[in-house]
Amino acid sequence: MATGGRRGAAAAPLLVAVAALLLGAAGHLYPGEVCPGMDIRNNLTRLHELENCSVIEGHLQILLMFKTRPEDFRDLSFPKLIMITDYLLLFRVYGLESLKDLFPNLTVIRGSRLFFNYALVIFEMVHLKELGLYNLMNITRGSVRIEKNNELCYLATIDWSRILDSVEDNYIVLNKDDNEECGDICPGTAKGKTNCPATVINGQFVERCWTHSHCQKVCPTICKSHGCTAEGLCCHSECLGNCSQPDDPTKCVACRNFYLDGRCVETCPPPYYHFQDWRCVNFSFCQDLHHKCKNSRRQGCHQYVIHNNKCIPECPSGYTMNSSNLLCTPCLGPCPKVCHLLEGEKTIDSVTSAQELRGCTVINGSLIINIRGGNNLAAELEANLGLIEEISGYLKIRRSYALVSLSFFRKLRLIRGETLEIGNYSFYALDNQNLRQLWDWSKHNLTITQGKLFFHYNPKLCLSEIHKMEEVSGTKGRQERNDIALKTNGDQASCENELLKFSYIRTSFDKI
C-alpha cells in the first residue's frame, strides 16, 4: 500500500482533458527560462521544448504516446526543470519506465491550478516501474492521483506527508504495488545497510526511497516546507523545498512566496507586481503582455491589467481597466465587458449561442446573426445582446428569417469595421425574408467608422429604411451602385405612401 494514499474509496472516473512563447529569463536562482504550460502528445517531438525550461508557468501534460519505446527515452533528460506552477499529468506514455532521468531536479509542483483537485496525476502508464522524482520536495496545493499503472512499484516507500501538507485526498490505487509483488529495495538494503531515512506512518517504520538508488530526502521537522541542505541544516524561511546553503534567500532552489532578481522575498516591493503567484514583474512586463494579447485571437491570451499590486489576466467583477495605466478602477454604474472572439468572429444561430455573449459591452471581433427560429426570440436576444455598444469588426445579418427588427441591439452605437466582410463591408444584410426595420432612427444613433453597407434580398425592408441608415451611420456616399439592390429590397412591402385627393359631386333626387 502506498504510504499516505487512500484505498478502496469510491472515486469519480478520471477524465483526461485534452506555445513556446518565453516569458522571460528567471535569473540567477533558476538555471534556465520560464516556459508556458505545455500539452505534449502523440510523439516526442515537442518534448524537446523543455530543454531550457527551469519553470513551467502553467501545467505540463505528457500523454497518448503509443509508439514510443524505452530506448526512445534513454537520452532524454531535462535537468534544468525545477518547478511547475500548476500540475504534472502523465497518461498512456508507452515505453517510459521512470522519471528519474527525465526530470531529475523537479523540486516543486505548486498546484496553482489543479487537474480535478490533483497536482500530480500518473494514470495508465503501462510501462512505468517507478516514479523516480527523487528531488520532489513540495506539492504546495492539491493532491496526488496514481492509478492503474500495472508495473509501478516504489510507492509504499514514499512518505507523501513530507511532500504535501495533507495526504487525506491522495488516491493511489490499482498499481502493481497493490499486489505486494514489488519487493522494493532501498539503497544499501541488499548489503544489509540502512542508507535512507525511515519514518513512521500508520504504525509502520519504513525506509523512504524513490528507487533502488535514490533515497527520499527527509528534512528535520523544524525546517517545515522550506527544505534543508545535504547536511540537514534548514533553508531560509522564504525558500521552498530545498537550498544549497542554509538561511540564505539567494540560495533557495525555489521560493515559498515570490522570486525577485535572484532572491526569494515575502512580497513584491514597489515598483514590482505579483505575477502568477510566484514571481515579481515590473510595469513594462505587464504592459507588454497586455499589448501582445490586445489584437491576438490565441486562446488563453489575456490583456493583463494591474489590481491590488498584482498583474492579473482581467479586472475583477465591479472594476474596469483604465487604459492609460492598466489599473483596475471601480465602475460607475454597470461595468464594461470586452469579449474577445477566439477566431475573430462568432455566429449567433440560437439563443444558446447568444447567451455566451451575455453582459458583453464591447465585441472584439465580428458578429454573424443567422437565426431561423426560436421561442420568445426578441426578448431572449435583447437579454443577451442588448448591452453590446461596440463591435470592432463587422455585423452580418444573414438568412435570419425569424427577425423582424434589429432593435434587440438596443445599445449598439459603434461598428468600427477594423475587419470587413469580403474585404469591403462593415454591415452586411443578406436574404432576411421578414426583416422590416433596422432601428427606430428617431431614437437610435449608430456610427460606422469604416467599410460599406450591403443589402440584398431583404424583400420587406424598404429602401427608405436603408437610406436612413446611410445618413445616420455616416456611410452615405461610400456605397457603390450594386451594394444596395434596388429590386430585391422592399419588393414585397408597401414602401411608397402617396396622399390621394378626392373630389365629389353631391346629387339628390331633384338636383344634379
Rank of each mutant, 00 (worst) to 15 (best):
C228K: 02
R41Q: 11
W210R: 03
M65I: 04
S225V: 06
Y87N: 01
Y87L: 01
T45C: 15
G333R: 08
P249N: 11
Y319Q: 04
V55N: 01
C255K: 01
C331L: 03
Y272S: 15
I163E: 01
D75S: 12
K129H: 06
G232W: 12
Q303M: 14
C264P: 00
N179L: 06
H307R: 05
H290T: 06
F103L: 04
N150S: 06
I139D: 01
T250I: 09
L60H: 00
N242Y: 06
D72E: 02
S77F: 15
D261G: 04
G188H: 13
K129L: 06
L106V: 03
H307W: 13
W278E: 04
R145N: 10
P336Q: 02
F275E: 08
M38H: 11
G203R: 11
C235L: 01
H212C: 15
N309L: 06
C243T: 00
T250N: 05
Y273M: 15
I201E: 12
P336K: 15
L133S: 13
H290G: 10
R41T: 15
V305R: 11
N150H: 04
W278Q: 04
C235N: 01
V305L: 08
Q303A: 08
S98R: 04
A254V: 04
V305T: 07
K251C: 05
S54L: 10
L327K: 15
A198H: 03
N322K: 10
S161I: 04
Y94T: 10
N149Q: 03
I84C: 01
N138Y: 12
L332C: 03
L81G: 00
A156L: 03
N175K: 08
R110P: 00
L136N: 00
N42T: 11
D72L: 06
P269T: 11
H214E: 06
L102G: 05
P197Q: 14
E124N: 03
G32E: 13
N138V: 02
D288H: 03
A190M: 05
L106Y: 00
L44F: 12
G95K: 04
S213V: 08
S166H: 02
C286V: 06
D169L: 11
L106W: 02
C215R: 07
L152W: 00
S284E: 14
T211F: 04
R69H: 11
C35N: 00
G183F: 10
L50E: 00
C280Y: 00
A254L: 10
S225L: 07
D165V: 08
C186I: 10
I56C: 01
G132N: 15
N242E: 11
V167H: 10
Q299H: 15
E207H: 08
H302E: 07
P104D: 00
E71F: 14
L131V: 09
V200A: 09
K80H: 13
L96T: 03
P31G: 14
C239F: 00
K176E: 08
R113L: 08
H302V: 10
N242M: 07
Y273H: 13
A190G: 04
N195A: 12
G300Q: 08
T157W: 02
M83T: 05
P246L: 02
N257Q: 14
I139T: 01
R256M: 09
N202F: 13
G183N: 02
R279F: 15
D277A: 05
S166I: 14
F205S: 08
C280K: 03
I201H: 15
T189L: 08
G262C: 05
E49Y: 11
A198G: 02
Y171G: 08
N105Y: 10
G333V: 03
I158R: 04
Y134S: 11
F123S: 11
N309H: 13
T157L: 04
L76C: 07
V218Q: 12
D75H: 03
I62L: 09
P36Q: 08
G203M: 14
G111E: 00
N149R: 00
A198C: 12
S237R: 12
P270K: 08
V265N: 02
L44E: 08
C219L: 02
P70M: 10
L240S: 12
I158F: 04
H290P: 10
D177W: 05
D178F: 11
L260W: 04
P246V: 08
L50Q: 01
K251S: 06
E130L: 06
C196Y: 02
K217Y: 04
F115A: 13
I122G: 02
V108M: 13
V93K: 00
L233H: 10
Y30L: 06
R69P: 06
D86S: 02
E49F: 12
N175V: 04
R256D: 04
D159H: 03
N179K: 15
T250F: 11
K148Q: 11
T157Y: 02
N175R: 04
A119T: 09
F78I: 15
G37A: 14
E130V: 06
Q287K: 11
E130G: 04
S161G: 08
N257H: 03
M137S: 07
E147P: 01
L106N: 02
K310Y: 10
V305Y: 04
L131Q: 01
I122P: 10
T157F: 04
S98Q: 02
R208Q: 03
W210N: 06
Q276N: 08
T211E: 15
C228D: 05
L64A: 02
N175F: 10
I306G: 13
H214V: 13
I82E: 10
I40G: 01
Y94N: 09
P330L: 03
G203N: 14
